[in-house]
């Protein structure tokens, strides 16, 4: 068995002394794992960073075996965001979410295209944060937990029970929460406060999609905390007040 494809590295785990087991979201073969011989080595480690785009060839004797990957770097996305805390947090949260939620070996071109577009935004779009939240909405739709934001009136709230928009003046029912739906979910940019609201909304339904109420995705939590800090400092990082200044 053999195929070649394009993909994005989701995670790399050391296997033995020199090899690594790598998860890749491929264009035509879905989320797929494989063994990379020498994957823990100095040369391969730079390639096998989460978020990098790669050309991959998978080989195995039988289809249901783990198989081995031969991987070549196609686009070094990680290098472009490594020194930006917020963008790096976005990249890590996105790859982790895809790895956790997506079934293995189920081809899904839309998810691949969506993640590629998100990585483009994270790499160079000043309004990437709005794109990130909209990408989470699209992921929720793929997982069967789509929210009806297209038909929401401005200022509408989203019901935690149904995911449907309700008028802002409506009171929540028993056991129901109404979460604000920021306008940028239908397009455009959002300020840090709106981004945090959007992430709270998608976070609730991601927990539901994972069937784990209250489950914390650490990378996503750190991303939300970073946006929340931006909100409180109005996008300007506070000074440090160094000793001896």
């Amino acid at each position: 068995m053999q195929w070649s494809d394009q993909g994005m590295v989701l995670s790399t785990r050391r296997h033995g002394e020199t090899s690594a087991i790598v998860q890749i979201l491929t264009k035509d073969h879905g989320r797929h794992a494989g063994l990379v011989r020498g994957g823990s080595g100095r040369k391969a480690r730079g390639v096998l960073q989460s978020g990098n785009e790669v050309s991959v060839t998978w080989r195995a004797r039988l289809e249901d075996q783990l198989g081995t990957f031969t991987v070549e770097l196609a686009r070094p996305r990680v290098a472009m965001v490594l020194d930006d805390p917020l963008r790096l947090a976005g990249l890590v949260a996105a790859t982790e979410l895809v790895e956790i939620t997506l079934a293995e070996r189920q081809p899904n071109r839309e998810v691949h295209a969506g993640l590629t577009a998100l990585m483009d935004a994270i790499e160079s779009d000043p309004d990437w944060s709005a794109a990130y939240v909209r990408w989470e909405l699209a992921m929720l739709a793929e997982l069967g937990f789509g929210l009806d934001v297209a038909h929401a009136e401005p200022g509408a709230m989203i019901s935690s029970r149904s995911g449907e928009p309700v008028p802002p003046e409506q009171l929540p029912g028993a056991g129901e929460r109404l979460l604000p739906m920021p306008d940028f979910l239908r397009g455009g940019a959002g300020d840090p406060r709106a981004i945090v609201q959007g992430l709270a909304l998608t976070g609730l339904f991601i927990e539901r999609a994972l069937d784990a109420p209250g489950r914390v995705l650490p990378s996503r939590t750190r991303l939300v905390e970073r946006f929340a800090r931006l909100d409180t400092t109005s996008g300007v990082k506070s000074g440090n007040g160094r000793k001896g200044d």
Partner: peptide
């Protein structure tokens, strides 16, 4: 040099 190192 690999592309990642060059880019960075």
């Amino acid at each position: 040099l690999d592309e990642g190192t060059l880019a960075w």
